Computed example of a mutant assay.
Amino acid sequence: MSRIVFNMGWDAKTAQELISGCASESGEFEQRCFPDGETYLNVLSDVADRECVLLINGVQPDQQFLSWIYMAENLKELGATSVGMLIPYLPYMRQDIRFKPGECVTSRHFAKLISASFDWLITTDPHLHRYDALSEIYSIPTRIVPAAPAIARWIKQSVDNPVIIGPDIESQQWVQDVASLVGCSYEVLLKERSGDRDVSVSLPKRADFKGFTPVLVDDIISTGRTMANAVVNLIQCDMKAPVCIGVHPLFSDDCIALLKESGAQQVVSCNTLNHPSALIQLTEDWTEALSNQ
């Protein structure tokens, strides 16, 4: 029988495009909270002997996590042959080391809990900084759908004479891949962090970038402080107003306003999360990955 897909947080349009694109059936379920805050789940579709997929929005994971686990375990009890998750933004990847004594390395524990209830996972550009691969912490098969090809396509269509800039060393893997696909130069700046919201970013080294349009690329834009600092520095070097691109638009607080006030001409993101800035579409890429799963 065909695969059945349950939407647990994606915007309805993107979810339906993916479900139709991979010839799957849309699963029906009911979810609500009891007065005491506990979760009620009821799967209305027949899932016996069928492969099930959960489309999961990874923002605010603490508010949703138990629902993912309850859903996966319930589907298996109802006879599903397997349960996988397609979660474009994979949370709990940044705490990958114990920076201070006693800190919890949440990335490892989150991965262990997910691996216990799901059979496989598809995501996009997880924050692999101190891990070389997801297999270091996930014991289930994982697949990464890269955002670089879609970002490169958008830049080619939308930006004249681009140069790709990484706001910090952690962005190098995305910057290098995007620049290679666009066929242009790139540079990675250096960041010094004094606190969660106190960062400084180095100036570009290449003087011959002045005639180009700088495109700042990073995987996660959260507060926007690092990227805003980079925008200011680029403009001070007499470069054109930069375009800012984030793979995952977390955009907390006044992030968009901060970037615009710093001098960014445009703020763009991928549709790994539902946001008005998500002009870079990865739906076809996820559809292909799911079709081949």
Rank of each mutant, 00 (worst) to 15 (best):
S171C: 11
C184D: 04
P276I: 09
C184S: 09
H248I: 00
D160S: 13
P149A: 05
Q64Y: 11
L273Q: 06
R50L: 05
Q281G: 04
E187P: 08
Q281I: 10
V268G: 06
E136H: 11
K205H: 14
E30S: 11
T106V: 13
R32K: 05
I97D: 06
T106W: 08
A152V: 04
P149G: 02
N7W: 01
Q31P: 00
I140G: 03
L44E: 14
L216A: 05
D119C: 05
Y186G: 06
I97T: 13
L282D: 01
T124D: 08
S107W: 01
V215K: 02
R108D: 12
C184A: 06
Q60P: 01
K191G: 08
T213W: 04
L121E: 00
D62N: 15
T142K: 05
V188P: 03
C237D: 15
K240T: 12
I97F: 13
A15N: 04
I151K: 00
P214L: 12
Q63M: 12
M85D: 01
V215D: 03
P91L: 10
G211R: 14
P146W: 03
A80T: 07
A228S: 15
N274E: 13
P126L: 10
Y70G: 08
G27P: 03
F251E: 01
N274H: 13
L282A: 06
G224Y: 02
A152L: 05
L258Y: 11
S135W: 06
F251S: 01
N42I: 02
P149W: 00
G246E: 00
L259W: 10
V83Q: 07
K260F: 09
F212N: 14
A230N: 07
D36N: 15
Q281S: 14
S2R: 11
V268W: 03
S82E: 13
D36S: 10
N42T: 06
Y138P: 03
A278Y: 11
Q266P: 02
G58P: 02
Q236A: 14
K76L: 11
K76A: 09
D119W: 06
S158L: 02
K156F: 02
D46G: 11
M85N: 00
R225K: 15
W120S: 10
P249S: 07
I137A: 07
G84L: 02
A23K: 14
Q281A: 08
R130V: 08
R130W: 10
T283A: 12
P146S: 15
L121D: 00
V243W: 02
D254M: 13
L258A: 14
P242H: 09
V5L: 08
W154T: 05
R143T: 10
E261Y: 12
S45M: 05
L90Q: 00
I122W: 01
A264Y: 02
H129V: 06
K156H: 08
I169S: 11
Q236T: 09
T272C: 11
W10R: 05
T223V: 07
Y92S: 13
G211L: 14
Q63V: 10
V47E: 00
S158A: 09
I155D: 00
S26H: 05
P242K: 12
R50F: 04
N229V: 07
Q16P: 00
I56P: 00
